[in-house]
Design a protein around this nucleic acid. Sequence first.
DNA 1: AACAACATCAACCGCGGATAC
DNA 2: GGTATCCGCGGTTGATGTTGT
Length: 251
Amino acid sequence: MVKSQQCEKAAVKKGPWSPDEDHKLIAYIQRYGIWNWSQMPKPAGLARSGKSCRLRWVNYLRPDIKRGSFSKEEEEAILKLHETMGNRWSAIAATLPGRTDNEIKNYWHSHLKKRFKATEPVQEAQVFNEKKKLFSETELFLLGEAPKASKLETTSTSSSSGPVHGDHNKDQIAEQNICACETFGELQSLWAESHIVRDSEAIFTDPGFTLSNPPTQSWLQEPIFPSGSSYNDASNDYWVNLSMQAEIDGI
DNA sequence: AACAACATCAACCGCGGATAC
DNA sequence: GGTATCCGCGGTTGATGTTGT
C-alpha cells in the first residue's frame, strides 16, 4: 500500500463545495463506488484532497442522510447517549440512522449543550466519573444493536482495487440527471430513483458484478477492475480519460 | 437602515489506530 | 519489526445567516 499521496500533495482546492463538484463526486461514486479516498479525486475530476471528498460524502452527499431539524426523540437520544458516552460522536451517530457525527456534534454545541448545563449543572462532575463505569457496557450494547454505518464504508473500501464498468447506459442516464440537479433535494430524490434501478436490475444483471453486500449498500460496493487488472498509475490514466470522456459525453 | 453580537453549520486540521508493504 | 499510507475521529475554525440594538 505504500503509495505516494499524489492527490494530497497536489494543489488542492479548499473551502465550500460547488454544486459541480458535488455532481462529480456523486457521479463518480455512483459509477465506481468508494475504493480509495486518496486516489479518487483525480479520476473523479476533482481538485480536492481525499479527506475533503470523504468528508463531503459522509456529511452531506451520502444518499441515506436525513436532513432537517432533529426530532424530540433524537434530541433525547443524543442527550442520553452523551451522558453515558461523552463526546464519542461517531458512536452516538451510529444509533441515529441518517444523522452524521458532525451534524450531531454541531447540534450538541449549538442547542443541547446549553440545555444540558441548564438542567443538570450539579451532575456534570458526577457524570464524568460515571462515564468510565458505564462506557464498556454501553459500547457492548451498541456493538450488538447499533447499525455500524461508518464501518460499512470501511469494510467496502479497505481493499483497494479499482472501478468497474457497470451498466453504462443506466449510469450515464443517472449521471446526466445528477448533473441537472441544482438542489440537494433533487439530488436525493435522484439517488432514491437510481438505487431502485440499481438494486433491482443493474447489479444483478451485470455479469461482472459480484455482490457481497446487501443491495441497499450497492453504492458502497467494492469496485472491480476488468479482467483482473489492478488500479495503478498506468490504469489511472485510463480512468482519468474515461472520466473526462464521461464529462464530455454526459455533462 | 446600519451595525454588532450571536447562532449555526460546513469544512479543515491534527492525531491515532489499522493496515499494507 | 519498521515505515508509509489510509481512514476515521474529535476539536476547532470561519463563513454565512439571523436577531437584537
